[in-house]
Design a binder for these strands. Structure first.
Lengths: 120, 120
DNA sequence: CTGCATCCTCTCGGATACTG
DNA sequence: CAGTATCCGAGAGGATGCAG
């Protein structure tokens, strides 16, 4: 696997240029709320209300927008049950699970080092 | 290492709440240009102009802002040489190297899967 | 309960011009 | 070459109200 930008470019010269699809995916995943929503879903399937409560500070609008984007990307799956009252569940797709396997090491590193970094 | 949000919370209950330092670091790293600048620096030390050219689409203002933030966080090191014309070099600090070791798997995954995701 | 619609604010970020 | 200063617009994102 590539461990530097140079290697990635060798394999794929136009990587992460403005028009490159990679840039789009990167923007979605690293959007203000994207990672936090995905992080919450690593616990497993969650309902709308659970997500709203578990992602501290997110507004309903942003939760909806973020979920729609990630669902369209095939990273999150949305399942709605035709009940009264309505119930909707969200979970990671296999693609999403793969993605989060790469993200978790980053998150645990940030968790471990944030204090030191911010205190500078 | 924690592989789910639940595990992270068990270790550190307030993790990724709005006021948590982790949120700040996450925001810096996943800012619009943060990862791309850091990615470019995985090739090694780079000068201002090289960075500007290598990160496609970034403006001078955003490059300056991003570099200042990352330097303040201790992730990037800025070295200026008192010459004429001026020369300034940027590189990853040991902390930055650690960080990028966690980010690179994510970037290569995105590189590999972006086409499929965007084409949906 | 699960959202969408609307309105509104404010920050991010682009363009341009200028300096040491 | 390596930035800073200023202005300005678009769009991200918040608050509220309402619908299925």
């Amino acid at each position: 696997m590539a461990v530097s930008y140079a290697e990635m470019q060798q394999e794929s010269p136009g990587i992460f240029t403005e028009a490159c699809p990679s840039r789009t995916v990167l923007d979605h995943v690293t959007s203000k709320w994207g990672i936090l929503v995905l992080l919450s879903l690593t616990d497993g399937t969650r309902r709308w209300g659970e997500l709203r409560r578990s992602v501290d500070g997110i507004s309903e609008k942003m939760l909806a927008t973020t979920l729609r984007t990630l669902a369209a990307d095939g990273i999150v799956e949305r399942t709605s049950y035709p009940e009264v009252p309505p119930r909707v569940e969200y979970s990671l797709t296999p693609l999403g699970v793969e993605l989060m396997e790469r993200v978790m090491p980053l998150m645990t590193w940030i968790q471990a080092n944030a204090e030191e970094i911010v205190s500078r």
